[in-house]
Design a protein around this nucleic acid. Structure first.
Length: 613
DNA sequence: ATGCGATGGTTCC
DNA sequence: TGGAACCCCTCGCA
């Protein structure tokens, strides 16, 4: 029952709590040789019901085999561990068995009487699965391992017949890829691709460089979840971050303690941050408050290029929010899209609206991502809630004039052209699939590959986005956080996955025993071997092991350093500096949870996970 | 220790 | 088409 409290409705929770309490009391009662003298109200009621006349309220208690484990050696989760073969019949049998065993001891038949008394109170002691509400099994964490509800489709690949634990696509080396039927179209576009584009892609794939060593972090920098990250284009070591509350943070991780938070630029979710190559002293941001800001990094003074709420608030249904944004450097345009399927052009120089709105997605649906092609500035890629990623020629924008419509059958969180040739496309959708199109010059009807990867939508989390590694010349490496947890020596951790999109192979899973939160926001530095991660309200910087060790020597610091920003929480006023002490860091996070996991799993403690046990 | 809240997409009516 | 109910691995604060 470790996780039962968080989600259910209040009434349901109380019911469950009540059941637990009763099970516990009954357990105590049975383990004792005789009836305790101090029974609580409910047990007293039961006793009264046993002995009493017809007037008393009747208590019906149904038990379950599982709650009998104090009297038999049965194991709670053996059935569920077996995967999807858990049938109705088995469950019924189990229940019958239970009533045979348990009812004689705890079930009270209603007294046979003709008097009309109060209606019987029926209390069930059966296990109730919080996922399917069925009885006889439970879903949830057992230690650091999550046990699925056997009656639901696989949480990972969404197919029925097995649980996540036995999913053939379970993220692991050599698993997780579903190659789409390969087409050999042989069109003239294929010829153009082979001739003009492919020579730019090296045939020999270089070894991937994975920044897998946690270098430094800033704990609780933001007051709400981090939603986006962007490296400063010229100042190495500076990263900007946006959060759900509208704050924009600037952090110089090379100096560790230099950080600034601008709190008054936006009043709602910062969805995208971008730099213009013409002026690296200002930064553009799109927000759910309906504005696009251009902010001076030194002063924090914003100028609003677009304000869709300038006419005031007209209710939630008409609230325009700006999501996808990108900058077309060549044309000097900021492209931004809203939650009604419309695209706007903003001129960087004149700082005014230069075009739009153009309806480019289904009316009334959110456009979540925009990306300009790095090679062909006229090409635009958009994606959104209407289940499509679409490719456009921005010179001919009309509804229905898209060059390609890539159907995903579900919400598409992000879509990116490949960073060097712009000829590949990588999309992330909420059906736990990463899709790759190898060439925009060939048949685009079906993706070249679908990679099954856990990144479910959860409204508490920033949507996951798979992003290309901008330094990978072969345009095959992508990074994305993982939603589903894995049991690492007794601690449930959510890795950051590096995936080779040409094979679907998991190249690396980056973890740190102290970071138990999910990391949906990840950004790879365009030049340096640095990975930045936004995990809940904190930021982390990862480097390859050698780099981290080198820095350690040069700066005389320990391998991991953290500072603590407190968001907008009331604090002592000064930031607490917490360098060189990861155990203390652990205590800020979910140390207690890690401890619990470690205990229940026997804790095969790793050399790193001292905080875990 | 534990309840609670923030809150988006989908499905059902 | 619109509104309401529902929802599986959150997270941290009160």
């Amino acid at each position: 029952m470790t996780k039962s409290g968080g989600k259910g409705k209040k009434g349901e929770y109380q019911r469950l709590t009540f059941r637990c309490a009763l099970v516990w009391r009954l357990t105590r009662h049975r383990s004792a040789a005789s009836l305790p003298t101090s029974l609580d109200g409910r047990m007293a009621l039961l006793t009264r019901a046993k002995a009493s006349s017809s007037r008393a309220a009747t208590l019906l208690i149904q038990s379950d085999s599982d709650s009998e484990n104090y009297s038999s050696a049965s194991s709670d989760f053996d059935d569920e561990q077996g995967g999807g073969d858990y049938s109705e019949e088995e469950e019924e049998e189990e229940e019958e068995g239970v009533s045979g065993l348990g009812a004689s001891e705890v079930r009270e038949e209603p007294p046979k009487t003709t008097n009309k008394g109060p209606p019987p109170i029926n209390i069930s002691l059966k296990k109730v699965c919080k996922v399917c509400k069925g009885t006889g099994h439970e879903a949830g964490f057992r230690g650091a391992t999550y046990i699925d509800c056997p009656k639901k489709p696989c949480f990972l690949c969404k197919m029925p017949g097995h649980t996540t634990m036995f999913c053939p696509h379970r993220v692991a080396m050599e698993h997780g890829v579903v190659p789409a039927p390969r087409r050999n179209t042989g069109t003239s576009l294929d010829y153009v691709f082979q001739r003009q584009i492919k020579p730019n892609i090296p045939m020999i794939k270089p070894a991937f460089v994975i920044p897998n060593q946690l270098s430094c972090g800033i704990i609780r920098f933001h007051s709400r979840q981090v939603t986006c990250l962007e490296f400063h284009p010229t100042k190495s070591g500076v990263i900007l971050s946006g959060d759900k509350k509208g704050q924009v943070g600037i952090w110089d991780y090379s100096k560790l303690h230099e950080k600034t938070v601008y709190k008054s630029i936006h009043s709602s979710i910062v969805n995208n941050i971008r730099f213009s190559s013409s002026n690296d002293g200002t930064v553009y941001a799109s927000s759910s408050d309906g504005t696009v800001s251009c902010t001076d990094l030194e002063t924090g003074e914003p100028f609003f290029l677009l304000n869709l709420l300038s006419n005031g608030w007209n209710g939630r249904a008409l609230w325009p929010m700006l999501y996808g944004m990108d900058i077309n450097q060549e044309k000097g345009l900021v492209l931004v899209a809203d939650n009604f399927g419309r695209l706007y052009f903003l001129d960087v120089r004149s700082k005014t609206k230069a075009g739009g709105p153009f309806l480019i997605h289904r009316k009334g649906t959110k456009i979540l991502g925009l990306h300009c092609n790095p090679v062909e500035p006229g090409l635009l890629l958009s994606c959104g809630n209407d289940h499509f990623a679409r490719i456009w020629d921005i010179r001919h924008l009309e509804a229905g004039s898209s060059l390609y419509n890539l159907d995903h059958g579900c919400v598409v969180n992000s879509a990116y052209f490949s960073p060097r040739t712009g000829s590949k496309i990588l999309t992330t959708s909420i059906d736990n699939r990463i899709r790759v199109w190898d060439s925009i010059f060939t048949n685009m009807e079906t993706p070249s590959r679908e990679i099954v990867h856990s990144h479910d939508f959860n409204f508490h989390l920033t949507p996951f986005r798979a992003e290309w590694d901008p330094k990978d010349h072969s345009e095959s490496l992508a990074v994305i956080g993982r939603y589903i947890s894995e049991n690492y020596n007794g601690v449930a951790l959510h890795p950051i996955d590096f995936i080779d999109t040409t094979s679907g192979k998991l190249v690396a899973e980056v973890i740190e025993p102290d970071i138990t939160t999910i990391s949906p926001v990840n950004k790879l530095h365009p030049q340096d071997d640095v990975l930045a991660t936004g995990s809940w309200r904190s930021l982390f910087i990862w480097r390859p092991k050698e780099d981290a060790e080198c820095m350690q020597e040069q700066l005389g610091r320990k391998s991991k350093e953290f500072i603590i920003g407190m968001g907008d929480k009331k604090s002592s006023g000064k930031d607490c500096i917490d360098s060189d002490d990861d155990s203390d860091f652990g205590s800020k996070g979910k140390k207690s949870k890690a401890k619990k996991y470690g205990k229940s799993d026997g804790c095969g403690k790793s050399k790193k996970s001292k905080g875990a046990c």
